[in-house]
Design a protein around this nucleic acid. Structure first.
Length: 618
DNA sequence: TTTAGGG
DNA sequence: CCCTAAA
């Protein structure tokens, strides 16, 4: 958190202002934005330097700023974390949406600062971008965006609001400069413009290497631009002009003046304020934040956003989102939330302004599902359609993952959607949510199943005769191979025929050779796995009272309701005696009627008979 | 990968 | 049925 050099104003909250001032001063308006690091790992250092430059007008700053201006982007990706910060910074700047996100944004800002301060040590060579390493970095950076988000959050927690402020300023700045451009799109464009000629703008970014890959740098650029703009507006200086002193004065005064720029200047209490502002922003999106932050930028953003190159922003967003999502898989919930918000934003972005507003905090959560649903609608539909055909669902891994990421946050929603996700996906996402979600989904699914399957096998089994049952099995329980891969197998009742097959298999191969039995006896039923066989067998044992379940009474009771035909139960008992279920374990003799508890030993013929008797009797 | 066992 | 550990 050494903000020392870079943050010198940070504590006061003036930092942002200072930065801004500094940048203009150097004549490099985008210094803040410059914050972006280089791709190379070494960049981390660069980043730090950058920060330093911010804090103090180091020579490096000018150069870096220049580089940036030149169109070179400094990507410093020191560590993932730092990088993340960076990214967040960039994201923030570049993405109005992110900014809108508010809390997250604020966090990100702090992160940025944090990262900056940390990395300050080295000098940044802008040209590095060109280096191959940097390229890779960029790519990675894109992926890391998610991380950044997370970092941002974390940092928010940390309370390094300072950085946040700057970012805000940046974003605003951008807006001013390229009024025509919407925030989100602007960022990209601005970035491109700033660094490269305008032509570069979105296309460059997108086109660069990979759309997603470059995005980070783009973002970076954007952020600076925005800041400048903001400042200009705020200070009224339009230009970058410089004037550190002036800016500082502004910073101080700014707080007082904040009228327009409250956000920026207000940086002093950044964290909370930011958060507040963010929240307010979110809430206000439409209007200016009633709260402290009188950020006109918001509106501007909105307005601009509406017009500006939606395509660009959209593309960029999409890329970032996708990348984020992909990467975020492992991320935490909050990360997911962020991602989700972004995702949601995408659509919104298209619409333009709205998108920006959407992102904020609570909204994000609420909307996440919405957005997701929108995005996922197709998936959902598919899922619903295929609800029980899981295998197919699995195919769209990317989407699924994405969905999960998003959905992770809102497990319920996900479930509602039908959640036929593969286990894998679930695992990727969040275990907790997953389980709960699964359960929920299961419940719903079960209901569905019941409805669909209509008659449960067992019940029918009781009533129906073997022949009928068989028929029914064939008809009602048509195999659905697709389901197999599904996240939660559709619950399929075991039909008598299946049970018989299982018994046959056990009798032939013995207990424990489920895979074999599966192959030989259930080769046609894809939905029955060896594990299923094992489970079923276990259940059969329980049903027949062989497996110790509890007390006899209970056993009896079970038997009473147990739908399985006696013949089957007998057979199971018989087999159980022959092949004790748990391998070494001795089958516990069904004591159904029986009195002597000590029967735990090997089954004797008498025992067997007794068992049979009990079964028959019952 | 299969099995066993718990949930 | 799911999930995990163990082999």
């Amino acid at each position: 958190m050494d903000n020392g050099p870079p943050t010198r104003g940070l504590e006061d909250g003036t930092i942002d202002v200072e930065r801004l001032l500094v940048e203009p001063h150097d004549g490099h308006a985008p210094m803040d934005s410059v914050i972006c690091c280089r791709k190379t790992p070494e960049n981390a250092m660069d980043i730090k330097d950058f920060s330093c430059s911010f804090g103090g007008p180091d020579t490096a700053i000018a150069q870096e700023g220049e580089d940036i201006l030149n169109g070179e982007v400094l990507d410093s990706m020191p560590n993932e974390v730092e990088f993340g910060y960076f990214r967040s910074h960039n994201d923030f700047c570049s993405m109005g949406d992110d900014y809108l996100l508010g809390v997250e944004f604020a966090e990100s800002i702090t992160d940025l600062d944090y990262g900056c301060s940390e990395g300050l040590a080295a000098s940044v060579s802008d040209s590095q971008m060109q280096s191959a390493g940097s390229d890779t970095r960029w790519k990675s950076s894109l992926f890391q965006i998610k991380q950044v988000l997370d970092c941002q959050k974390d940092q928010l927690d940390m309370g390094s609001s300072e950085s946040d402020i700057p970012s805000c300023n940046k974003s605003e700045m951008l807006v001013e400069e390229n009024p025509s451009i919407s925030p989100g799109s602007c960022t990209v464009q601005n970035i491109g413009k700033t660094h490269n000629s305008p032509s570069c703008s979105s296309q460059d970014i997108l086109s660069d290497g990979n759309d997603g890959e470059h995005s980070p740098s783009d973002e970076m650029f954007c952020s600076p631009m925005t800041q400048k703009n903001d400042e200009t507006e705020v200070t009224g200086q339009d230009g970058e002009t410089n004037i550190f002193p002036r800016q500082e004065a502004l910073t101080t005064s700014v707080q007082a003046n904040c009228t327009d720029l409250p956000m920026q200047k207000r940086s002093r209490k950044p964290t909370q304020r930011y958060a507040d502002e963010l929240t307010s922003v979110q809430a206000n999106c439409t209007g200016r934040p009633t709260q402290k932050r009188s950020r006109k930028p918001t509106q501007r953003y909105v307005d601009e956003l509406a017009d500006p190159i939606p395509a660009y922003s959209r593309k960029r967003r999409e890329v970032s989102t996708s990348t984020l999502k992909d990467k975020s898989l492992g991320v935490k919930d909050h990360k997911k939330c962020h991602v989700a918000s972004r995702a949601t934003q995408l659509p919104a972005e298209e619409s333009s302004v709205i998108a920006i507003q959407v992102p904020f905090g609570s909204l994000v959560h609420k909307e996440c599902p919405k957005g997701r649903t929108c995005d996922l609608v197709q998936h959902v539909d598919t899922r619903n359609l295929m609800t029980k055909s899981k295998g197919k669902c699995v195919t769209p891994n990317k989407k699924k993952k994405r969905d999960e990421c998003i959905s992770a946050v809102h497990p319920k929603k996900r479930d509602d959607c039908a959640a036929s996700k593969t286990k894998r996906d679930d695992q990727f996402t969040v275990a907790h949510s997953k389980k709960s979600s699964d359960r929920i989904s299961l419940a719903s699914q079960k209901k569905k199943d019941d409805c669909i399957i209509a008659m449960t096998p067992k019940k029918r089994g009781d009533c129906l005769t073997g022949a009928h049952q068989k028929k029914r099995d064939d008809c009602t329980i048509p195999e659905r191979p697709e389901e197999v891969s599904g996240r939660r197998k559709h619950h399929r009742l075991w039909t008598i025929t299946e049970v018989r097959k299982l018994i046959d298999g056990v009798s032939q191969y013995g207990v424990g050779r489920w895979s074999r039995i599966k192959k030989l006896f259930f080769s046609t039923s894809a939905h029955r796995t060896s594990v299923d066989l094992k489970d079923k067998w276990r259940n059969l044992l329980k049903a027949s009272g062989i497996l110790d379940q509890g007390r006899q009474g209970e056993k009896k009771r079970n038997m009473a309701w147990r739908p399985l035909p006696k013949s089957i139960l007998l057979r199971v008992c018989e087999l159980a005696t022959i092949y004790p279920y748990p391998k070494g374990q001795r089958p516990k003799i069904p004591l159904i009627h029986h009195d002597s508890p000590d029967r735990s030993t090997d089954i004797t013929l008498s025992d067997y008979r007794r068992i049979l008797r009990s079964i028959n009797g019952s």
